[in-house]
Design a binder for these strands. Structure first.
Lengths: 110, 110
DNA sequence: CTTATTTATCGTAATATTGCAATATAGTAT
DNA sequence: ATACTATATTGCAATATTACGATAAATAAG
C-alpha cells in the first residue's frame, strides 16, 4: 500500500485534507506568510526569501496552486503569485465551526 | 533527499505545519469530525466508523496525538480520545489572522 | 487460569514527498 | 540572433507515509 484511500471519504473531507496537507510543510507555511505579508502580489523574489533551491521552491508553489491555496498569473518575465482569499476563508470557517461545536460540549473528560 | 529541512524555519512555522500535516489526510479529518460530533469523549468505536483496518486507525490516532490535536486517556478496557480544544483554537486564530491581513490588502491583482 | 475484547506495535510492501542538479522554457533586452 | 533573467520541468536519490496482516499487551469476564 502507501496510497491514500480517498474514495472512502466525502469530497469535502478530501478537499479539506488536501488543503491542510498543502499547508503541512514549513516551507509552504513560510511561502503563504510571505505572500500574505507583502502588500502587493507581484512576487518575483520568493526564492531569495527562502532557504531552499529554486526548483524546490517552484515545486512547493505548484503544490500550493494545485491545492487551490494560491493563484498565479504571468506578469511579463516574472510570475505573480497571490493567496486565494476564499480558500483561506473556507478553512477558517471550518475550524471556527469545529471550535464552536467544541465550546458547546457538555461533557469534558480528557 | 526526502527529509524536510525543519531547521531552516521558525519553531512556530514547524509546529503549525505539523498540525496542518496531521489534518492532511481524509481519514484523520474524519476522525476529528467524529470526535467533535460525539458529545462525550468515550470513544471505543472509532474503528467501526471508519473504512480502514484497526491498525491503520490506531496509527492515525497516534499521529493526531503526536501533533497535539487530540488527547487520550485509558478508561478501563477502552481508551478515551478527545479533541484538544486549544490546538484547534490556535489553528483557527492563525487562519483568522491571515484572513484579516488579506482583507486589509489594498492592491488585489490575481 | 483461560478466554474474550480492545488497543498498540512490528514488519513490510506500495506509494508519496522532499530536495536539488541539470536542463528546458519563455520573455526582455541588446 | 545572442545574451540575460526568471520560472518550470525532468530525473533521481533519500526519506516518509499509508495500509494492513500478524502479533503483542492489557484489562475484563467467566
Amino acid at each position: 500500500m502507501g496510497a491514500t484511500k480517498t474514495d472512502h471519504f466525502s469530497e469535502e473531507q478530501n478537499r479539506l485534507a488536501n488543503r491542510m496537507k498543502a499547508l503541512g510543510h514549513p516551507a509552504r507555511i513560510a511561502i503563504m506568510e510571505y505572500l500574505i505579508q507583502v502588500d502587493t502580489c507581484i512576487c518575483g523574489d520568493i526564492v531569495n526569501v527562502l532557504p531552499l533551491a529554486q526548483p524546490t521552491v517552484s515545486q512547493h508553489l505548484k503544490e500550493l496552486k494545485n491545492a487551490g491555496l494560491i493563484k498565479g498569473s504571468i506578469e511579463g518575465t516574472a510570475i505573480c503569485y497571490c493567496v486565494d482569499k476564499d480558500a483561506i476563508a473556507e478553512l477558517q470557517r471550518y475550524l471556527a465551526n469545529a471550535n464552536l461545536q467544541l465550546e458547546n460540549k457538555e461533557k469534558q473528560c480528557c
